[in-house]
Simulated assay, not measured.
Amino acid sequence: MMNDLKFELGQHVRLKTSDEEGHVVGRAEYEASEPAYYIRYRGGDGRQIEAWWGESALTEA
């Protein structure tokens, strides 16, 4: 069974708890957990950050 991924590569997204925004640069789907997205964004301190986030931690920007 395939999951429908909510976000597309290159899509602008927001981190729900911090309101930081960035772009999807990678995606992964798993058999036993929620999809994950590799996001490139500017952290609150101004640094560029790249990190994996679960789909439930993201929203459309």
Score class of each variant (00 low, 15 high):
Glu34Ile: 04
Ala57Asn: 08
Glu8Val: 02
Ala61Lys: 01
Leu58Pro: 04
Ala61Met: 00
Gly22Cys: 01
Glu8Cys: 02
Ser33Trp: 04
Val24Ser: 15
Arg40Cys: 06
Asp45Cys: 02
Glu55Tyr: 10
Asp19Pro: 00
Asp45Gly: 04
Glu20Gly: 00
Arg40Ala: 04
Leu9Met: 15
Tyr37Asn: 02
Ser18Met: 08
Pro35Ile: 14
Tyr41Asn: 01
Arg42Ser: 11
Leu9Glu: 13
Asp4Leu: 08
Met2Asn: 12
Gly54Pro: 14
His23Arg: 07
Gln11Tyr: 06
Glu34Arg: 01
Arg27Asn: 13
Thr17Gln: 13
Thr59Ser: 13
Asp19Met: 00
Val24Thr: 15
Ser33His: 02
Tyr38Leu: 14
Asp45Thr: 01
Glu31Asp: 06
Val24Ala: 11
Lys6Cys: 11
Val13Ser: 03
Arg40Ser: 02
His23Val: 14
His12Gly: 01
Gln48Gly: 13
His12Ser: 07
Gly43Ser: 13
Ala61Pro: 01
Asp45Lys: 01
Trp52Cys: 06
Thr59Trp: 04
Ala57Asp: 14
Gly46Ile: 13
Trp52Arg: 05
Gly46Trp: 14
Tyr38Asp: 08
Glu60Gln: 12
Thr17Arg: 07
Phe7Pro: 01
Gln48Thr: 15
Ala61Ile: 03
Gly22Phe: 00
Gly43Asp: 15
Ala57Tyr: 11
Ala36Asp: 07
Tyr30Cys: 06
